Simulated scan of single mutants.
Amino acid sequence: MVTQVEPESPAAEVGLESGDLIVGIDDEPITSSTALVGQVRERGAGDEATIAYIRDGERAEVTVTLVTRPDEEG
């Protein structure tokens, strides 16, 4: 479950909200936060990913362009 969405982040730009339940990335099921992190790490900055999520019992999808988080820059 999304616990926080950083302002001006790709997640915020596509409308993800705190409380959304991410259930898939690019047709890969997400069953845990560990699986989510693993799927995101397999992709690089600039890659697009389709995120499937559930909000208020309704499934939806958004496409997001991944970026490097400031605390991950080397």
Score class of each variant (00 low, 15 high):
Val2Leu: 06
Pro7Ile: 11
Thr3Ile: 12
Tyr53Ser: 00
Glu28Lys: 11
Val2Tyr: 08
Ile22Thr: 04
Ala52Glu: 15
Arg69Ser: 14
Ile25Cys: 06
Tyr53Trp: 07
Gly74Glu: 12
Glu42Cys: 09
Asp56Gln: 14
Glu13Pro: 02
Ala12Pro: 02
Ser32Gly: 09
Gly46Lys: 04
Val37Phe: 09
Glu72Asp: 14
Thr65Ala: 08
Pro10Tyr: 05
Thr50Gly: 02
Gly24Ala: 14
Gly44Cys: 02
Pro7Phe: 07
Arg41Glu: 14
Ala12Gly: 03
Glu13Val: 10
Ala11Arg: 00
Thr63Gly: 01
Arg69Val: 12
Gly57Met: 07
Val40Trp: 03
Ala45Leu: 02
Thr68Ser: 14
Asp47Ser: 09
Gly46Ser: 08
Met1Gly: 12
Ala35Ser: 13
Ala12Ile: 00
Gly19Val: 11
Ile54Pro: 01
Val64Ala: 15
Pro29Ile: 03
Asp56Ala: 14
Arg59Asn: 08
Ser32Gln: 07
Leu16Gln: 08
Val23Glu: 02
Glu42Ser: 13
Ser9Gly: 05
Thr3Pro: 00
Ala45Gly: 14
Ala11Ser: 11
Asp27Met: 05
Val23Asp: 01
Arg55Phe: 03
Arg69Gly: 15
Glu28Phe: 10
Val5Leu: 08
Ser18Met: 11
Ile30Phe: 00
Val5Lys: 05
Arg69Pro: 12
Asp56Gly: 10
Asp71Gly: 02
Arg43Ser: 09
Val23Tyr: 02
Val14Asn: 02
Asp20Cys: 04
Glu42Lys: 15
Asp56Met: 10
Thr63Glu: 09
Thr31Asp: 15
Asp47Met: 04
Ser33Tyr: 09
Pro29Cys: 02
Glu6Gln: 13
Val62Met: 00
Val67Ser: 10
Thr68Phe: 02
Leu36Ser: 09
Thr31Ser: 14
Leu36Gly: 06
Ile54Asn: 03
Gly57Gln: 07
Ile25Met: 09
Gly44Met: 05
Ser32Lys: 05
Gly24Gln: 05
Ala49Arg: 01
Val2Arg: 03
Leu66Asn: 06
Ile51Thr: 10
Ala49Pro: 06
Glu72Cys: 06
Gly15Thr: 07
Arg69Met: 12
Asp71Lys: 13
Glu13Asp: 13
Glu48Tyr: 07
Arg41Met: 13
Val40Arg: 00
Asp47Tyr: 08
Glu61Tyr: 06
Leu16Gly: 07
Glu48Cys: 04
Val40Glu: 04
Val62Arg: 11
Thr68Gln: 13
Glu13Ala: 14
Glu17Arg: 14
Arg59Gln: 15
Thr3Tyr: 06
Thr65Ile: 10
Ala12Lys: 01
Leu21His: 09
Thr50Tyr: 02
Arg41Asn: 12
Ala12Glu: 13
Gly46Thr: 08
Val23Gly: 00
Glu48Pro: 01
Gly19Tyr: 09
Ala45Gln: 12
Gly46Glu: 05
Ala49Ser: 10
Gly57Trp: 00
Asp56His: 11
Ala60Glu: 12
Ala49Gln: 04
Arg69Phe: 11
Asp20Leu: 01
Gly57Val: 09
Glu28Pro: 03
Thr68Pro: 03
Val62Asp: 03
Gly24Arg: 07
Thr65Glu: 15
Thr34His: 09
Arg59Trp: 02
Thr31Phe: 11
Thr65Trp: 04
Tyr53Cys: 01
Val62Leu: 06
Ile30Gly: 07
Ser32Pro: 03
Ala49Trp: 07
Ile25Tyr: 05
Ile30Ser: 08
Ala52Ile: 04
Glu58Leu: 11
